[in-house]
Design a protein around this nucleic acid. Structure first.
Lengths: 181, 181
DNA sequence: ATTGTCATGTAAGAAGTTACATGATTGC
DNA sequence: GCAATCATGTAACTTCTTACATGACAAT
């Protein structure tokens, strides 16, 4: 049992920051601009049960009295699974089709081994440059023959990847500078 | 019956360009860089059956002999449904969370009423600017207090929306110029 | 006491994934 | 004849969505 949905890892990462209830997690999803997860109880409570079933999280004794709240906390196994997921080697596919997931991993990565963020960002930039080289070929030779609609849609994609590559470059420099201090 | 999954509309749009078989559509998905749809038969054939069941597409008599192939073609009802989907009014949510779907709509929009593409792109830019205004507020006041990871992840998002806004601006100008000729 | 909101949950169904199954046809 | 591949399909499973259900606490 070494896998879960993205939602599962998002919950695991948030619980790693602080033990919380399902209701707390839902509130985080509605009030936070960074990730676009659903706040539906039909997704969150079953996901929490999945995590609990495979012993990645466990209930914590909360404050007695007041409203009923079930607080959860990652287990040792869960922390290891989170670290594995965060530090997993990057693939081209992660960068091309899974940008949101990558940014989720980046957001949770601060607490991991020093240097992990730098290595992660360097890998992101490397894969992006590689993919952009492929795209430039298509852009030069085949894209001009397309109708306006598809052509614009394709260019939007290319511009997106370019922007991400620039962002990655600056991010690497910034994190390197910070660590040196 | 006025809805379907994104995959359903992608198939409908491709069938509108030319009657094809499920196998043809799968090949389009693997060989085309613009949309990242799955080529799995377990997704495509059931989706085609859904479309056929609600009378949006119908089988066409293909060339006799040769391999067995079931060609499909949109019905009048299906063409109308496609047009409705393509020309549907834009929401903030379409732009913020559904970029890929928007670009799919743009790619299929060439065949629709003249001016549709311009109006579409103008709406995209308008919604993007509005959302960016919201983001700038967060970026100035709350983002600096975040840890590096979340901060970078957030900035990546902002950079993405900025790039899309620039792209939309240029796209509007280009399409306007073309139409004037 | 009653009403609202907090907090957790479940049921039914949609859609996609992986993996397997099945013929038919083509190329050699 | 036989292997490869073309082409369609199905089965089991996972996850998420929408909508409803339930009860406990809080405020008045």
């Amino acid at each position: 049992m070494r896998s879960d949905s993205t939602l599962g890892f998002a919950l695991l990462g948030l619980l790693h920051q602080a033990p919380q209830s399902g209701y707390d997690l839902r509130k985080t999803f509605v009030s936070t601009p960074m990730a676009h997860f659903s706040d539906s109880p039909g997704a969150i409570y079953p996901a929490l049960r999945r995590l609990a079933r495979q012993r990645w999280i466990a209930p914590v004794a909360g404050p007695q009295g007041g409203r009923r709240r079930r607080l959860f906390q990652p287990t040792t196994l869960g922390r290891r699974a989170l670290a594995d997921w965060l530090l997993r080697a990057l693939t081209r596919d992660d960068v091309v089709r899974g940008w949101d997931v990558l940014m989720l991993r980046l957001a949770f990565m601060s607490g991991q081994a020093p240097g992990a963020v730098v290595r992660f960002l360097e890998a992101v930039e490397r894969e992006l440059r590689g993919y952009l080289d492929e795209l430039e070929g298509f852009l030069a030779h085949k894209a001009p023959k397309l109708p306006v609609g598809p052509q614009l849609a394709f260019e939007s994609g290319v511009e997106g990847y370019r922007a991400q590559a620039r962002w990655a470059r600056r991010a690497v420099e910034r994190v390197r500078r910070q660590r040196r201090v």
